[in-house]
Each structure stands twice: as C-alpha cells, then as structure tokens.
Design a protein around this nucleic acid. Structure first.
Length: 244
DNA sequence: GGGTCATTTCCTGATT
DNA sequence: AAATCAGGAAATGACC
C-alpha cells in the first residue's frame, strides 16, 4: 500500500497534466511503454474491455493525478484486474474501492466503454510521458488481447482463436467444426506474433510464409481461392470443441 | 561444435 | 494498384 502511494506521489501534483504535455498529439510518438508494441496497434480501437492489467493501472494513475485524489483513499488491491474485469465492476464496486472517487471513475470508464475510437483523452493517458517510468505494482500484463500460450506459430494462432472474448476481432472461425478460420486483422496478428518472438519487424507477409510451410507437415490444410483463410490439418491438435 | 528444427528473411512471379 | 499467395533459397536462433 505504501509503495502504491509513493508511486502516485512521484507525479508532480501541482502542475496540471495538460501543461506538461505536447500539444500536438498526432505528431507525438507514443512511448514504448510495452516494448515491442508498435503505434500501429495503438492506433486501433482500444476500448477498456481489452485493456491489460498494465493499462488498467495506467488509467487509474491518470485519473488519480487528473483529479488530485489522495492516493491513500484508494484500495489499489481492487484494481489488480484486466480490462474485462474492470468493465464488469459495478457502481458500488467503484465506490467501495475508491470512496468519493467512485462515481467519477465509474462515469469516466463508461464513456470510454462506448466510444468507438481512440479518443484524444485515451491517447493522452496512454502516451503520457509522466507515466512511462512508473512501475506497475501488478504482474506483467499478458500479451494483448488473448493470452496465447503455445510456443509455435500454429499454437499461437490456435490459442487466439480459443479465446473469443479476448480475441478482439483478430481472427475468426469460418467453420468451427472443420477448423477453418480467417485472419481479420492480419498485420495486427503479425505484430502480436512479433511481440511474442521479440521481433518488431514481423509482418503478415513473413508470417504467412511460415503458415505455408505448415501445409507440407499437415498442420494446416490448404483452402483454395480464399484469401486469409486457413484450415487446421490432422497434425494440429487442441482446436476442436470435443478435445480438451 | 555440429545438426536439426521451426521459423525468418528475401525474393520472383502469379493471382485476386 | 495493393494485398495476398506460392514456394525456392538461404540465414537465423534455440536447443540438444
């Protein structure tokens, strides 16, 4: 608890955030708070439902700073949650966790939930240079948006597919029982794969070459004529509904 | 150190 | 026209 408070207090509380930030956000590079992520991902819709624990923490810090809240009044242990869990918190949950700040946090979050795009405000808090060096008190966030465990590419793809609620429209089943799926955001999946492999130069062009090597090993079956569509083959396991 | 494996990188050319 | 697909060839990095 003390550590959290100290952390918050390290932000100069007298100066307003706005006065310390560059005024032109469009040209300001987003600092690499999560190494390996590119601005490409950040420019996509980024609703709180998909935030990692890390982003939840950053949002909370920004709110505390913006509203000059006494950090001691906040029960930080209630915010060791990811975006999905944060969004399922009720008005009462917020009040219980933050006292008088509850209504403000609750309303602010609700506005973000329904905004379709990355708002100026969202960008502001995610990119705030004031936040870069502040340690996150919670464990490292899992890879956004799903948490693919597999070490191989096809397992990585499978595991995103198997987390529909957190997959954020990257991939989609075309035929669930036959194992046919399609890339919806091919470059974003490639970036995510690159992050996992610590390779920021990964592209769909390169990822797809690796996918094509799977045909010979029968991990994937060829689907003809359909762009961005693949099908799991007999040597791919763990994707069927009946399995596992 | 060598060999294997699973990609990664690069490329040329075809297709959508 | 741009994106995607097809594979060959070679390079790379992890692992045994």
């Amino acid at each position: 608890m003390v550590r959290h408070t100290t952390c918050i207090m390290s932000i100069p509380s007298t100066a307003s955030i706005e006065s310390q930030l560059p005024t032109t956000w469009s040209s300001y590079p987003c600092p690499d708070m999560m190494p390996g992520y590119t601005s490409r991902l950040w420019s996509q819709d980024y609703k709180p439902q998909y935030w990692s624990k890390y982003l939840v923490w950053q949002w909370l810090q920004q709110m505390v700073d913006m509203h000059q809240i006494d950090a001691a009044s906040i029960h930080f242990q209630n915010f060791d949650v990811d975006g999905r869990q944060l969004c399922s918190m009720t008005y009462q949950d917020f009040t219980r966790a933050t006292g008088t700040m509850g209504p403000i946090l609750y309303q602010s979050l609700n506005e973000l939930k329904w905004s379709g795009t990355l708002t100026h405000w969202t960008k502001l808090f995610m990119c705030s240079p004031l936040l870069i060096d502040l340690p996150c008190p919670f464990p490292e966030p899992s890879i956004y948006p799903a948490d693919p465990q597999g070490t191989h590419l096809w397992e990585f793809i499978r595991d995103i597919l198997l987390n529909p609620e957190r997959n954020a429209g990257l991939l989609k089943w075309e035929d669930r029982t036959d194992g046919v799926f399609r890339f919806l955001k091919s470059e974003d999946v490639a970036q995510l794969w690159g992050k996992k492999k610590n390779n920021s130069t990964m592209t769909y062009e390169k990822l797809s070459r690796a996918m094509r090597y799977y045909y010979k090993r029968e991990i994937l079956e060829h689907v003809d004529g359909r762009r961005l569509v693949y099908k799991f083959g007999k040597n791919a396991q763990g994707w069927r509904l009946s399995e596992k």
